[in-house]
Amino acid sequence: MLYSEKVMDHFRNPRNLGKMEHPDGVGEVGNAKCGDIMKIYLKITDGVIEDVKFNTFGCGSAIASSSMATEMIKGKPIEEALTLTNRAVAEALDGLPPQKLHCSVLAEEAVKAAIDDYYQKQESQEKELADKPIEKV
C-alpha cells in the first residue's frame, strides 16, 4: 500500500472536518495549480485552541495531514500549537511516502497561518480600541 493504516484512517474518517462560523483565525495555504490547498479555522479562548476545523483540496495524504494536524493542536495553548512541526505530523501518521512529505509541511504552514491571522485580528482589535476616543463622562 502507498499509505500507512493511520493515513488511510485519517483520510477516510477525517477529524475536525468542516467550516466554522465566525472563526478567530483562518489560515489558507497551498496552490490549486499544484493540487493542494488547506484551510484551517480556529476558535481561541484565553489563549487556548478551543475548536479547530479544516477543509482541504488535495490528495489522500493532504487530507490526512490536515486532519492529523487539527487533532494535534485541538485543546492546546497557542504557544504549544506553534511548536507543531511537519515532522511531528508525518510521524503521527506513521510516516508518509517521500513524495508526499510536502503535505505535512502544508499542514504545519496552515496551522501557523491560522494562528498568524488570529494575532493580526487581535492586534487590529486592540488598535481599534486604543484609537477609539474616550468618551467624556
Binding site: 472536518l17 467550516k19 489558507e28 490549486a32 477543509n55
Partner: peptide, 14 residues
C-alpha cells in the same frame, strides 16, 4: 463539499 477551492468557485471568489 470539503474543498476550499470548490467553496471559492461557488462563491464567485474564483
Amino acid at each position: 463539499s470539503i474543498s476550499p477551492v470548490w467553496e471559492e468557485l461557488e462563491s464567485g471568489a474564483r
